[in-house]
């Protein structure tokens, strides 16, 4: 590239202070800073601090009531009765009633997450894309908001009143000639408990999957149809891959929701169905032969691990499924 002569208004090369010639040549007054520049920077800093102040309570809260207890729980899981390091409590999770409690909890959570999720998905899809009257959406949202939080003892009693041995629905079915209790069903067993869980699982699914379904644009369905796709082909190649990340996330959330439920199974089955939260509750209440609070910590630690595995799996699947997301 050819060099060009410096323009008259430009400083010629070599006229700038040269640091190698000694301090006398570089020493000089600093170029004047615009008035108020320092104040501006300080103000900017203060504004930034104010912004952080807004979320400070959140961080303080989660540190105090989530992070610290989790760390303590993990530490205590590896403590023996005298406070020394021990893997005995964690080892007990892999045998006997505790292993069985995990298996039952995972089974119940998986069944109700899948069934409730599927049921909720269909209802949400109908509400979002089903061209139903306008009042249906808010009605469904309100119901879902209430039903998703309707758990514990009231829910248990509601189901006993409807599907218990003398419940309203049971009586109606009996009158219709269908004696469900003669066919092995009981509201106090695994099937009854699953049905009860689904009551709060599917409304939760409606609430959390609706935004994903709203993002499913009508143009995609029409474009697929226009190009010759049948509804099944549209769902296989377009619809399902698009909602998959949201669907996975929602199912994991439903799994976690069921996995940690305590009051509903306790009220309904009085602890006869062996679930991890029920085991932890028994230890906390001292309903055990040999009190061992560290075992409760270990059981809770086990729950954290299972949820962490589920979330990691979800993140991995989502990354794989959602390469196209901006």
């Amino acid at each position: 590239m050819r060099s060009r002569a410096p323009a008259p208004s430009e400083p010629a090369q070599g006229t700038e202070p040269d640091a190698t010639r000694g301090p006398a040549l570089v020493a000089g007054p600093e170029p004047p800073r615009p008035r108020g520049a320092g104040r501006g920077a300080r103000r900017k800093g203060r504004a930034s601090a104010w912004r952080w102040l807004g979320v400070l309570p959140f961080f303080a809260y989660t540190t105090l009531f989530l992070l610290v207890p989790t760390i303590e729980l993990i530490v205590k899981s590896f403590e023996g009765p005298k406070g020394s390091f021990s893997t005995a409590n964690v080892s007990r999770l892999f045998s006997g009633e505790y292993l069985s409690a995990y298996a039952t909890s995972v089974e119940l959570s998986a069944i109700t997450a899948a069934a409730g999720g599927l049921f909720g998905l269909f209802i949400a899809y109908g509400a979002v894309h089903g061209r139903l009257p306008a009042f249906i959406r808010p009605l469904l949202s309100t119901f879902s908001g209430v039903a998703a939080n309707f758990a514990g003892i009231p829910l248990a009693f509601a189901f006993i009143a409807t599907l218990g041995p003398t419940g309203v629905v049971t009586s109606l079915l009996n009158r219709a000639g269908l004696h469900i209790y003669n066919h092995g069903f009981t509201i106090f067993g695994m099937a009854g408990l699953s049905l009860t869980y689904i009551y709060f699982q599917f409304p939760l699914m409606i609430l959390i999957i609706s935004p994903t379904l709203e993002g499913l644009r009508a143009e995609w369905r029409e474009a697929a149809q226009n190009l010759g796709a049948t509804p099944a082909q549209y769902w296989r190649h377009v619809g399902l891959p698009l909602i998959l990340p949201g669907l996975l996330g929602s199912t994991v959330l439903l799994f976690g929701n069921a996995f940690s439920a305590y009051a509903t199974p306790y009220a309904l089955t009085a602890g006869y169905i062996n679930l991890v939260p029920v085991q932890i509750g028994a230890i906390l209440q001292g309903n055990v032969t040999v009190p061992n609070p560290q075992l409760g910590d270990a059981l809770a630690f086990g729950m954290i691990v299972i949820i962490a595995v589920a979330v990691t799996l979800y993140v991995l699947l989502q990354r794989r499924a959602a390469r196209w997301l901006p």
Partner: peptide, 21 residues
């Protein structure tokens, strides 16, 4: 005749490309 058997190509107003492809 249903849309998927008409053999008509359509370009929509909004971007309608399948984002997962």
């Amino acid at each position: 005749i249903p849309a998927n058997r008409r053999n008509m190509g359509m370009v929509f107003q909004a971007y309608s490309l399948f984002p997962n492809m």
